[in-house]
Design a binder for these strands. Structure first.
Lengths: 94, 94
DNA sequence: TCATCTTGTTGCATGTATGCAATAAGATGA
DNA sequence: TCATCTTATTGCATACATGCAACAAGATGA
């Protein structure tokens, strides 16, 4: 995808922070997958947004990360966690 | 099912408070279904526990009821809301 | 009584979440 | 260099979420 190509997400897409949370905890997909009893490839599908998890899996991930569902999954695009925690840091790169 | 038949929920069942929340707000299934853009029969399926909603639908219901996902859906059986709000009221009917 | 509303149920169709196997490719470290 | 780890991708199979149509049955109110 080129620099200024525009890509519109479908209105029913669900965004998630799985990759970020996994990176923070320095886990491989295999380790995270084991922790929530799914196939490691499924973590890849979720991180890439290929499809959404079932509610059951979302609740298991929420429990594993010890975070409310809404902090991991959202129908709106997430702002970077850093920005969420310190709004003053917002960068305008335009 | 008879009085003392034992029914074990499958370990992966998800419980929900949709029927209670809908009753509180005095909505028909049709009205709730319209509010979250699904078929009214699907509300029936969810209330009866015939199947779980997708994460997308769970988030829409959560938004509609203005409640966190965890208060509507759980991998554990819910205690009655009344008991949750006033634990001292717990009844032992044995 | 009759019409309407609400709910339960059955049956069929479609799309999607998930598993799993196989392969490729980049990173890392011996 | 070679082996190993991690990730991406493709293809196939299965289970389940959802829609929709049809019908039955209880409640309610004219």
């Amino acid at each position: 995808m080129q620099q200024d190509d525009v890509y519109l997400f479908p209105e029913d897409a669900i965004f998630n922070r799985i990759a970020v949370l996994r990176a923070e905890r320095r886990l491989t997909r295999q380790e995270l997958a084991d922790a929530v009893s799914i196939n490691y490839q499924t973590i890849g599908y979720l991180e890439r947004g290929d499809y959404n998890p079932s509610l059951d899996l979302a609740l298991r991930l929420s429990k594993f990360f010890q975070l409310p569902v809404e902090l991991i999954f959202s129908r709106e695009q997430f702002k970077p966690l850093s920005e969420t925690l310190n709004p003053a840091s917002t960068q305008r790169n335009k």
